[in-house]
Structure formats: C-alpha cells, structure tokens
C-alpha cells in the first residue's frame, strides 16, 4: 500500500479547496442560505407544517443533501478531469500507485470537502430556522455515505468527460433535476399516487428521506430501504471505477 501517495493526493486536492475557498465553500453556503431566507423564513411561515415539522425546519435536511450531492459530483469530477485536461495525469499513471489508492485519494478528498460543506450549511441554517437532530449518529452516517457515493459518481464523470461541456451536462441535466425532484422541498406524500410511484425511481428520494428521518424521525420510505439504496449506488459506482482501471478506459492506450 502506497500510503504516502494517498496522503499526497488527498492533501493536494484539499489544498485546491482552500485555495478556491470562496468558490468551493462560501459559494454553496451562501446560495443555500438564500433558500432558507426565502423559503424558510419569508414564505415558509405561511406554509403549513409538514408531518408536524415547520416548513423551514423541514427544508433543512433536503437542502443540505442537495448541496452535498451536487458539490460532491462537481468537485470530484473536476479533481480528476483537470489533470486529464492539462496532461499532468501522466505522472499519476507512471507512479507506483494502484487504482484503489488513487480512488481513496481523490474521492476521499472530495467527500471530505462535501462533509465540511454539509456541516457548514447545517450551522448556517441554525441561524435562520430552529431544528433538532433526533439521530445524530445516523445523520453523520448518511452525510458521509452520500458524500462518498456521489464523489465516486463525480470521479467516474471526470474520467468519462471529453470536454468541459460534458463535465457540466451530467450535473446540470441529471443530478440537479433529480435533487430538486427528490423531495428536498416537499414530502412525497403530498404528491398524487401516480407521481409518488414515479418519484420512487429517483434515487435521491431515498437519500433525502433517510437523511430527514435522522433529523425528525419521520420518513417517506423505510430507513432500511434508504440505507440499502445508498449501499447499492455505492456498489455500482465502485464496480464502474474498478472496470475503468481494469480496462484503462480513457486513461491508458
């Protein structure tokens, strides 16, 4: 195991986060805060409570999840796409570093950043709305699992993309819509029976539901199912990453 390489990649990637502090941390925190101000504090007070939770508080887990999802994907995809784009990937490919170590370094750094971001958004949200966390350990577990899974997805995206446009397409056309329609702003029980069924095909629903359960003890789908879905998504991503390194897909000729 090349521990020094894992450490080097991890440190190098996190250094990029600190260097672009405003864009990578402050930006998402500020934009999520705007949601809290508009939907939570301003309009939210006119909305009825959802499942016994005020609408402002109801929003918190969903909005944190939405930021964590999109930031994990974009950060991890950028982290591995950048060296491919600039050509510096030659060094990684010629180094005594295994695929596993590479993934731990890049995905670990991206996931770490997402966890930090999620925590900061939670702290900021506390300034606008009152909320409690019923199962803090599960909350942290969901946060970390989601960060890792979607960082893996971002890593795959960063290797698949041939250009900056492709790099933007998946987050813009797939991740963001799924996150918006994944029950961040509403409980799926509010939907008609038909749309409830359709919504269950959206994997984000399970994440948001499980995460919200860890706050308020109420969930749209059983918690075990939420955990199972995260595990399944992670397994699929790991399998794709394994295949990428086995075949050298877009990395080696």
């Amino acid at each position: 195991m090349n521990l020094h390489a894992i450490k080097a990649i991890y440190k190098f990637e996190l250094a990029r986060t600190w260097r672009t502090l405003f864009q990578s941390i402050a930006g998402p925190v500020i934009s999520t805060s705007l949601y809290f101000i508009v939907f939570g504090a301003a309009i939210g007070s006119r909305f009825a409570a959802v499942e016994g939770v005020s609408y402002g508080a109801f929003l918190v887990p969903g909005l944190v999840m939405m930021s964590v999802l999109t930031e994990s994907v974009s950060n991890a995809s950028f982290g591995i796409y950048m060296p491919r784009y600039s050509g510096t990937i030659y060094e990684l490919l010629s180094a005594p570093v295994s695929a596993f170590e590479t993934v731990i370094g890049y995905v670990g750094a991206a996931a770490t950043k997402s966890v930090i971001l999620g925590t900061l958004i939670l702290l900021t949200a506390r300034l606008f709305v009152d909320f409690s966390i019923a199962h803090p350990v599960w909350m942290v577990a969901f946060l970390m699992l989601t960060s890792v899974t979607f960082s893996l997805l971002g890593f795959i995206l960063g290797i698949w993309a041939d250009g900056w446009e492709k790099l933007q397409i998946v987050p813009m056309l797939i991740v963001t819509p799924l996150a918006f329609l994944g029950g961040s702003f509403y409980s799926i029980s509010m939907l008609s029976p038909f749309w409830q069924k359709v919504t269950l095909f959206n994997p984000v629903v399970y994440l948001v539901s499980g995460f919200r359960w860890s706050f308020y003890g109420a969930a749209d789908v059983p918690v075990a199912l939420s955990l199972g879905m995260v595990a399944l998504m992670m397994a699929v991503c790991l399998a794709v990453v394994w295949w990428i390194f086995r075949t050298g897909y877009k990395l080696k000729n």
Partner: peptide, 27 residues
C-alpha cells in the same frame, strides 16, 4: 519521467507540486 509536453499544474506553487510528486512515488 520528464515528458515532452510542458504539462504542469497551473495554480500550485513550485514547492507544492514537487513535494506532491515525491509523495506520489511513495517517498
């Protein structure tokens, strides 16, 4: 390996990029 193309990171300092390489090669 010193590649033919001038492929370097853009935003990192010289010190950081050289230290990164050392770690990558397991030292």
């Amino acid at each position: 390996l010193v590649p033919q193309e001038l492929t370097t990171e853009a935003f990192e300092s010289v010190w950081a990029t050289v230290s990164f390489s050392r770690g990558l090669f397991g030292k």
